[in-house]
């Protein structure tokens, strides 16, 4: 019980490197004992802004966790300027995470900044012996990251980009159709239009990690509510991962 509690933790920055256009990889050292599955997130305090910044966990081991984030505004800009050995504070152990309930085969579908949480997920699934087919979509080559890391986990890695500068031109959903990947149980994270497309064309069950503007990140403010077939859920507590069976799109 104690291990599952939300709490404030401090982390030492091991590195904070630019890995793609406006995209940084931040490796942190500190308490990671609360990470019991991939897909959870932390809410990082930034001196530049009033509210914290929710960022999903990209990778973790016994003593470190890694975040991959894109600079969108002043908060992530502040974070990108933090240096090695500096400290950051975060509210941790947030969100439900992915359920690793796929037995034989899984399709991983990531788009842009939705790719990071799928990396730790893919590692855990591979450890379970699950055969992975991976589709990663980016705006263009300069935005792409982690392709080689995913290729270490599977021989079946498809890449798409909006402008064709890397991989095949088009969307991840085009890849799903072209290579007949519509009936494999899937895990996905990315922009909402991509999630909707994946949800509508796949005939298999899936888990979808949603993104929403948050106030608190721990369930108190109701800022990030999302309608589901089982009633209204908070993306920060009952999510961010929802099943394809329960999800309803807000519009």
């Amino acid at each position: 019980m104690v291990f599952n509690m939300k709490k404030i933790e401090n982390y030492k920055i091991i590195h904070n490197n630019l890995i793609a256009k406006n995209t940084y990889e931040m490796k942190l050292e500190g308490n990671v004992g609360w990470i019991d599955k991939p897909g959870k997130f932390i809410n990082v305090s930034v001196d530049s802004n009033y509210l914290k910044r929710p960022i999903s966990i990209c990778d973790y081991d016994e003593t470190t966790l890694t975040l991959v984030y894109k600079v969108f505004g002043s908060g992530t800009k502040w974070l990108s300027n933090k240096k090695e050995n500096e400290k950051i504070e975060a509210l941790v152990n947030l969100g439900n995470g992915f359920e690793l309930n796929t037995e034989n085969e899984a399709l991983i579908i990531g788009g842009g900044v939705g790719v990071p949480p799928l990396y730790a997920l893919s590692k855990r699934l591979k450890e379970k012996g699950v055969k992975l087919t991976i589709i990663l979509g980016f705006t263009s080559k300069e935005d792409s990251f982690y392709i080689d890391k995913f290729k270490e986990l599977s021989e079946l890695v498809y890449i798409s980009s909006n402008d064709g500068s890397i991989g095949e031109i088009g969307f991840v959903s085009d890849i799903m159709i072209k290579y007949n990947l519509l009936d494999i149980p899937y895990y996905t994270c990315g922009p909402t239009p991509m999630l909707k497309a994946v949800h509508s064309i796949s005939t298999a069950k899936g888990q979808l990690s949603l993104e929403e503007r948050m106030g608190c990140g721990f369930g108190a403010c109701m800022g990030c509510s999302h309608k589901t077939k089982n009633g209204y859920k908070r993306v920060c507590v009952e999510g961010p991962v929802f099943t394809s069976e329960e999800i309803i799109w807000n519009d």
Binding site: L51, R213, G215, M222, G223, C224, S225, H226
Partner: peptide, 23 residues
């Protein structure tokens, strides 16, 4: 009440805005 459509949260210097809408 479900309240308002998201996004419901914005922020500013030393403050925030919400339009939760009495969910």
């Amino acid at each position: 009440r479900f309240g308002n459509v998201t996004p419901r949260i914005a922020e500013c210097h030393m403050g925030m805005l919400n339009s939760v809408g009495l969910q």
